[in-house]
Write a protein that binds this DNA or RNA. Structure first.
Lengths: 119, 119
DNA sequence: CCTGATTTTAGAATTATTCTAATTATAATA
DNA sequence: TATTATAATTAGAATAATTCTAAAATCAGG
């Protein structure tokens, strides 16, 4: 695990936010002024491959990166605001309905956040 | 509903596939040789806004467009191949666990497709 | 038919991401 | 330690997807 990979992983794992590659790059640059976007992208891809973080493809905004611990997401349909939720685990049900071999799943629940509801 | 919007909607609603904007553009061009990418993008966005189709953000490939009828997706983690499934409806459970106001949800289940499993 | 609104077009612009090749750092070896 | 091999990082160009802009075309109502 290289210097940058380690810091990127730490930032993603410790943070509650769901940062884009760009945001991670800007954050990291504060302490590592020499780092460059491509390095961040390389490391994010490598960390995903190793299964240490996960990538969230979000409609209408760049991909975001998230800690690996299982949880689901609540997404405001209007502004895209993203927060974590812990819905019941579906693995058992999925396997019994679809058969073995489920690796993981991604559940996004859409709603209107309080701010957007006032409109 | 304009000429192009109508045709784009029909193609998406009738097809089992999950086409990218590019694929839709190429398909449409066969019968409407004058159409241009921007028109397809404009119409796809307009149709999404009206709630007539939905957009699927897929990791590592351009967005895909899908019919609106509720269903879930099975995605090969390795090659990205996408197929429809009909898992139990979660709306009730979601509302009882998260409160009212759920608009919809998106469930992607990851697995290895038969082809990719042979490796 | 005229007027205004909407849609489409063409192409430039923007954004996100990947690629390439050169450079640097790290680790392994003699 | 010097040498070599391997992997990571850099800089910047390249690509891909999507959006924007302004002009031209189409449509709907008076």
């Amino acid at each position: 695990m290289t210097k940058y990979a380690e810091q990127i992983l730490r930032r993603i794992s410790e943070s509650e936010s769901h940062m884009t590659a760009e945001q991670i790059f800007l954050e990291l640059k504060k302490t590592e002024p020499k780092v460059v976007q491509a390095t961040v992208y390389n490391n994010l891809n490598a960390l995903c491959q190793k299964g240490l973080i996960r990538k969230l493809s979000m409609e209408g905004s760049p991909d975001r990166y998230d800690k690996i611990q299982k949880h689901d997401h609540l997404v405001c349909q209007r502004c895209g605001a993203l927060s974590d939720i812990n819905f019941q685990d579906l693995t058992q049900d999925l396997e019994s309905q679809l058969g073995e071999g489920i690796l993981s799943y991604d559940l996004k629940v859409f709603y209107l956040c309080p701010a957007c509801r006032k409109k």
